[in-house]
């Protein structure tokens, strides 16, 4: 009996220790990032770091605006493609699609989620970039290499399809049946019910799904790096090259050891990214957890 209780006790201690360790790990991440960013923040005030557009580390200019704008452009473009497509697809899957179709489509979307980002990058380089450079840009009379924020946005859009669809589908499932039936029995068509009841009711959940997708898009590194062109200038049109924050970190880390402030600048970039993503994630998760709880009650 003693031995059994001892085992129980040991497991209790070990697993709570593991939990504590993972909590310490996330605190450590923050401490290191903040500690490493301090030199840059002492050198330049935070307002000018975020608003200046000149990036030349060798001369001591650390303007983050091109990267912030690069990230903003690709993220917004990806949302323009992903939000309508995902919303419509999710509604179709939940409300209209026959069971058989749903059973085929959902695994395929899971497959899309499982593809590593480097494969999206390869696809972008082989397909989207030439498509943009040779066909789409000339349509508008613009000369572009194809390595642009638009290409980045499209690749990102495909990458965030799965997360958006899976969450929106779950949210739509939580809509009480009574509400739908009430609307239908009053003579509304199914589509009218969807627009006026389902979507209205599911709005917080849908927004949470979009926010989660945004935070996924913000952190995506390699695929975007491969197709965006990586020129540290504020993009002026969708066919211009951009330089998102994660790409900046991935491209320059490891080469900046000789310039102390450069190291600090990249760590600041990581901190910026982390804070934005954590905030987005936290908001979205709290909203979704609340919805799930309401649904279960």
């Amino acid at each position: 009996m003693k031995l059994r209780l001892l085992k129980d006790f040991l497991f209790n201690k070990i697993s709570s220790l593991l939990l504590l360790c993972s909590f310490l790990a996330i605190s450590l991440i923050f401490i290191i990032l903040i500690y490493k960013s301090i030199p840059l923040l002492e050198y330049q005030n935070i307002g000018s770091i975020l608003s200046q557009s000149v990036w030349s580390p060798l001369k001591g200019n650390f303007g983050f605006l091109p990267f912030i704008m690069g990230t903003a452009w690709v993220t917004i473009i990806s949302l323009c493609f992903a939000v309508p497509l995902c919303l419509l697809t999710s509604i179709y899957l939940v409300e209209y699609a026959p069971d058989k179709l749903r059973k085929i489509v959902l695994p395929l979307i899971n497959t899309l989620a499982a593809l590593p980002s480097v494969l999206y990058g390869v696809w972008g380089v082989l397909f989207i970039v030439p498509l943009m450079g040779e066909y789409i840009a000339p349509l508008f009379g613009i000369v572009s290499s194809g390595y642009s924020v638009l290409s980045g946005g499209i690749v990102l859009a495909v990458m965030i399809f799965p997360i958006m669809i899976s969450i929106i589908v779950e949210v739509l499932h939580t809509i009480p049946k009574e509400l739908k039936s009430a609307s239908l029995s009053l003579g509304a068509t199914k589509w009218e019910t969807i627009v006026k009841v389902n979507i209205k009711k599911a709005k917080p959940g849908i927004i949470a799904a979009i926010v989660l997708a945004i935070s996924r898009a913000l952190g995506e590194t390699i695929a975007v790096l491969m197709v965006c062109g990586n020129i540290p200038k504020v993009p002026q049109s969708i066919f211009d090259a951009g330089y998102p924050i994660p790409a900046l970190i991935a491209n320059n880390f490891g080469e900046m050891m000789s310039i102390p402030l450069y190291d600090s600048a990249l760590m600041f970039a990581a901190l910026l990214l982390l804070i934005i993503i954590l905030a987005f994630n936290l908001i979205a998760r709290v909203v979704l957890n609340k919805l799930e709880k309401n649904h279960n009650d």
Partner: peptide, 24 residues
């Protein structure tokens, strides 16, 4: 709150992990 923490950890991009691990 621990589950919320892991949800949020799940969202941290790998480049951030990579950068921190590299500095360590």
């Amino acid at each position: 709150s621990a589950k919320l923490m892991f949800d949020v950890l799940y969202g941290i991009p790998s480049i951030v992990y990579g950068a921190i691990a590299f500095s360590i």
